[in-house]
Nucleic acid binder design. Structure first.
Lengths: 214, 214
DNA sequence: CCTACCGATCGGTAGG
DNA sequence: CCTACCGATCGGTAGG
């Protein structure tokens, strides 16, 4: 996905792209402030002064990293939801959104995780711009809940704002413990979605288990 | 709570305590690395060299901040659970734990939030020590779920580890959006607990609404 | 994209 | 708890 084909992209663009990936990786591993321009340059195989040929400042690199991450999330979830059959209900929509969010965070790991920690380190203007993008992303989720309310699938008196925030919080935190190697995304995301939908209570007729059934 | 009475505490101890609170505040607001020893000193009304009379290093201060936060959480939740009647069921235990976690994070705001962002900035040894404390805290939660499984209150096939992590993730993220001023903790924590217990689905008989009922 | 460099700031220390 | 200071490192720039 990152490196498609040759295309006609100018040479500098390729390097800038590679440089950003290197920076994102270091930002994620050590944190934005703990990563020096010299380290980024070294990891990218160039001298520190050369960084400024590609980006006007270190902060610009961070902004670019953060923008990639949130746009990737927005696009992925948008696509996922569009591809669902129109008849898809709340459970399927939620499952799909959760799974896509989790998978995208994994695919864009360095970009996504660098963003989470570094939001506090950018200028107020940049932060505001980034929060606008986040807000747009939140709207995708809001719609899932609002639709489910209209269709009567979820309780009419449910306060969907905190529900949404809890879910996104749970997802954003998952990188702290979810083992990326084992590809347990599908299982974990279905578990979360079903927990939200059905709860964890033992019941006479245990609800919906589409996956992981014997 | 912080400043109890006069007691017999040596003078230096009071200052060290105050200094830590000041540091925690700055760590939270700007981040650990973005906060200089000089800034801490200035905010505490002393010269930067004097910091080292109280703490051997900046990192030591961060470690102290983080330890306070996680110990406060452990103690608060332990007490809360102990004070519940032995007959209390899963829902009540979960509600109590969620509310206490949320309230404690708020009460120890600077300490708790500084910790979340700064874990990546301490030495491997300190990090390991801190993660041990976190693990202990996690055990308190684990017990709630394991007990509920034994009593048959929650589904026997439920994988409680991700459930627990999702809940703690949702709680830790809540500081990003939950309005601390409005004291909406009780409402938010009941909502989360009930969502986990019952799910959000509309049902013939809508489940458990102890609070916020007409 | 490199060399050579600048001013600023950092955490920390010696000695009182 | 202060004064005075150190070496190291930082982001960034000029000029090529």
């Amino acid at each position: 996905m990152t490196r498609t084909a040759g295309k006609t992209a100018p040479k500098g663009e390729v390097s800038s792209e590679r440089l950003l990936a290197v920076a994102a990786h270091l930002f994620r591993e050590r944190g934005y402030l703990a990563t020096s321009v010299r380290e980024i340059a070294k990891a990218a195989g160039m001298k520190s002064g050369s960084i400024y040929y590609h980006y006007p400042s270190k902060e610009t690199m961070l902004e670019a990293v953060m923008t990639r991450a949130i746009l990737a999330l927005s696009e992925a979830v948008t696509q996922t939801l569009e591809r669902l059959p129109p008849a898809a209900g709340f459970r399927d929509r939620l499952r799909a959104a959760v799974a896509t969010h989790l998978k995208t965070i994994h695919d864009y790991g360095d970009f996504a995780l660098a963003s989470r920690e570094a939001l506090g380190q950018i200028s107020p203007d940049s932060r505001e711009a980034h929060l606008r993008l986040r807000k747009e992303y939140g709207k995708l989720w809001r719609k899932i809940f609002e639709d489910a309310k209209k269709s009567g699938e979820i309780r009419a008196d449910l306060d969907v704002v905190p529900v949404q925030m809890f879910i996104l919080g749970a997802l954003n935190w998952s990188s702290e413990w979810l083992d990326a190697e084992r590809r347990s995304f599908q299982r974990a995301s279905d578990l979360l979605a079903d927990m939200v939908v059905d709860g964890v209570l033992a019941r006479a007729a245990p609800p919906a288990k589409k996956l992981r059934a014997p």
